[in-house]
């Protein structure tokens, strides 16, 4: 078995399993802590607030956007870009189709892929350089934040290195980093990719039942 076959095969399956089970365990763990039932008479629906909170926080508020434009542009660029790369990159669709899902869908054309990569990379770099150059973020950042940023960056970079599809070793490097990333994910702050639903929803619900239209 070649190195590529290992990182694409058993190791990938192991990493994906850790990712799925770990993330589930953590989400369920958070939910299972539970909270006291709020018995104050509600003004409006908490469930609707949960959903509204989730949607409302997708859109930044103008008055805060001005001061941290870099962060907002970088944040959106990176997250939307990464999402598009993962789910609409031709090689990724092939991989998901052949190994996991068994379904295929249209991919981005190559020029779009390159453009989106540029945006995603720019966004991630912006977010990280703000982390090292803003006194607030320097104070509050932890090792985990940096490891998460760098690991994601390396996964993306190795992916772009392997774009020519000419060398197995480059593809294997990418896949190895993907495996590491998948294993790291559920134990780290990368989990925000899932926990944001709970956090936005919980405060949305609290606000919602008070009848506050955020």
């Amino acid at each position: 078995m070649s190195f590529l076959q290992i990182v694409e095969g058993p190791l990938f399956i192991f990493a994906a399993a850790v990712f799925v089970l770990g993330a589930l365990w953590r989400l369920i763990g958070i939910i299972r802590i539970g909270r006291k039932k709020d018995i104050s008479p509600p003004k409006a629906s908490a469930a609707a607030g949960f959903i509204r909170g989730n949607l409302r926080h997708f859109i930044p508020r103008g008055i805060f956007a001005k001061r941290t434009m870099v962060h907002i542009v970088g944040g959106y660029g990176f997250h939307l870009g990464l999402f598009a790369l993962i789910f609409f990159g031709a090689y990724h669709i092939d991989f998901l189709n052949e190994r996991i899902l068994g379904v295929s869908w249209p991919a981005m054309p190559r020029w779009a892929f390159l453009m989106v990569s540029g945006v995603a990379f720019s966004g991630l770099i912006m977010l990280w350089v703000r982390r090292i150059s803003d006194p607030v973020m320097r104070l509050i950042s932890s090792k985990d934040d940096h490891i998460g940023s760098w690991l994601t960056f390396l996964v993306m970079l190795s992916g772009c290195f392997a774009l020519e599809q000419a060398h197995d070793s480059l593809r294997a490097t990418h896949m190895l980093l993907v495996d590491i990333w998948l294993v790291y994910f559920p134990f780290s702050r990368l989990m925000h990719g899932f926990t944001f639903v709970l956090s936005r929803g919980n405060s949305g619900a609290t606000y919602g039942r008070k009848g506050i239209d955020l």
């Binding site: 390159l114 990569s117 290195f161 774009l163 000419a166």
Partner: peptide
Amino acid sequence: NSVLTSAAMQGHNLFGPV
């Protein structure tokens, strides 16, 4: 060197516009 150059070339092309 071939592997490295292939990687570098792709990375270079992608980051160029950035």
